[in-house]
Each structure stands twice: as C-alpha cells, then as structure tokens.
Design a binder for these strands. Sequence first.
DNA 1: CGAGTTTGACCTGCGC
DNA 2: GCGCAGGTCAAACTCG
Length: 305
Amino acid sequence: MSGYHEREHFRSLFHDELPALFSQRPTDGVACISGGPSGSDAGAIFPAVTFNDVPLGSMMDNDALPRAFGLSCSAPLDVLGSGGRTGSPELMVDVGNGSGSLTPAFGCGGRATTVTPNSSTSSLSAEAAGEEDADRCQKEEQQEEEGDTSKKVKKHKKQGERRQREPRFAFVTESEVDHLEDGYRWRKYGQKAVKNSPYPRSYYRCTTQKCPVKKRVERSYQNSTIVITTYEGRHTHRCPATVRGSTLLLPPPLMSTSFFQDLVMQQAHQLNSTANQMPPLQQLEFSHYGLLQDMVPSFAHHGQP
DNA sequence: CGAGTTTGACCTGCGC
DNA sequence: GCGCAGGTCAAACTCG
C-alpha cells in the first residue's frame, strides 16, 4: 500500500516546514508534533477517524478542530496533518506534553470530493501559543508605560487591550493555486519573501468585520505543488458559503456531532488524568459519509457570542 | 467608487 | 546591542 509512504512523505514535509511555521515551540507542558524530534510517537500507528467526501470549505473552519477535540485556545495542542496524493486528507492531533498523547487521526478513504476546485490533498496542523502572548503582552504594557516615542508611524497594539495570539492550524494542500477557496472571503494585507525559499509568503485577513482570523499561504520550497495554509484565530461569523445555503446540500448526519465531541473530550480528560502515563491509542473508525460535514458546521456555532 | 492587491517601511522577537 | 527574519501597516495602485 502506498498510503504509508504518502503519509511519511507529508510527515517529513511537516518536519521540514512546520518549524518555520511554528517557530515558537512551546516548552513546558505542551504538545509536540507527531513523530517529531520529541519522539513521542515516532513509530506510532495513527488511529483513523475516516470520513469521505469532505468539503474542504468545511474543514477550513479552523475553529472546528480545537472544539472538536474539546480544547480551548489555551490548551496545549499541536495538530499534525498528513495526507496522500490520491485525495486523502488526514488530520492528526497530538495533545499532551510528550509524556502522553492523544492522537485521533482523520484519514480519508480515498475519494475526496471537495467543494473547492483547486485542492486535491489537504492536511492540518495547529499550535497553541499562550506563553508567548503573555510575554509579548508584558512587553507591550511595559512599552506603553515607558511612553515609547520611537514609534514613528504606528502602534500595532490597542491601548488597554491585551493581544492574544490564537491557535494556528496549518493545512498542507497539493494545489497549483496559492490561495485556496475555502468559503470565506480574504483580503491580502502583506507578502514577504521567505528565507531559503523562492516562494513568497502571503498574509490574508478575513474581510468580515471584526473577524480576527488570519491566514498565511506559502508554497513548499521542496515541492512547489504543495501549498501550506496556516490559519490563525476563530471566525466570529458563519462561513459565507454555508450561509448561502450550502448546508442544505450536506448529507444527513449519520453520527451525532456531540457524540464525537464527547468521545474526544473524554479522551482528553483521560489524558489529563494520566499525565505521566502513555495512554493507549484509541482507534476510532468512522467511515460514515459526511461525518466532518456534520461535525464542522455544528461546531462553528459552539461558543459563539 | 469601493473592494482588493501591491509594496516599501516599520515593528517585534530572537539568536548571537 | 546588533542584525536578521517574520509579521503588520498603510499609501498607492488596480480592477470591476
């Protein structure tokens, strides 16, 4: 089977590229990338939650995943994705601090019929960045107190407001198109050349008012057909594509969203309660059509104000 | 004319 | 402290 090699291919891709994406590696009590230098699960066989016919637009609701796994923004979380060339989007989630792991993985059993015309493969990764924010906020506050007058042009921070960096989720997508259609509207606000890469990195912001979500798009310098899209933040609104009525096209749920969420939250709870033990990998095998479609739009409403 | 893109300058964090 | 690289801003520009 080629699946293993494909998975390894993307895993190595992540190891090469994600350090750049996730340059601020958490240190204490946080998760490590699957199979990474931490070696937490270097040889692990990832359990699979399988779904078919995943609309990428739904997956792109980056808010869904942390909630799907019962994690708050501050939860230590790394999600590592890998996938194959044959339209096999996968999602791997590692939760823990190296002393344990919770690794539900989404594997797609082949045909991925996406709503986007320009994607054939996608994967996902995430990071939490709480500690860094604390430091940053402290420094910002300090700067304000000191009345820094060297800022000639602008201040990035709002007065009296702590800036928090949201969790990030990186999709690795094989595509000829840089900016993948994901159902949301984005406005490009910057582009930077990336060191050691011939391809620039583009910065996008959700155009919806007061929506803080940003995303970065860059190509792999190793494989120019691979696009790495990193989402940051939570959408404060529904996916425009969904609002337009696409939800009516979704198949009826065959497994309840709450069931899945409860299951994963239960695992997370188990992990927390056995912090120093290696929890058994639990395998979830869902081949039901439309599981994620059921999961994601529903989660998109959880925790909304 | 409004929305989106481009691009140079500036800010920030981090390693040395 | 300095330099580098990533990230962001905002004016200028383009496009429909």
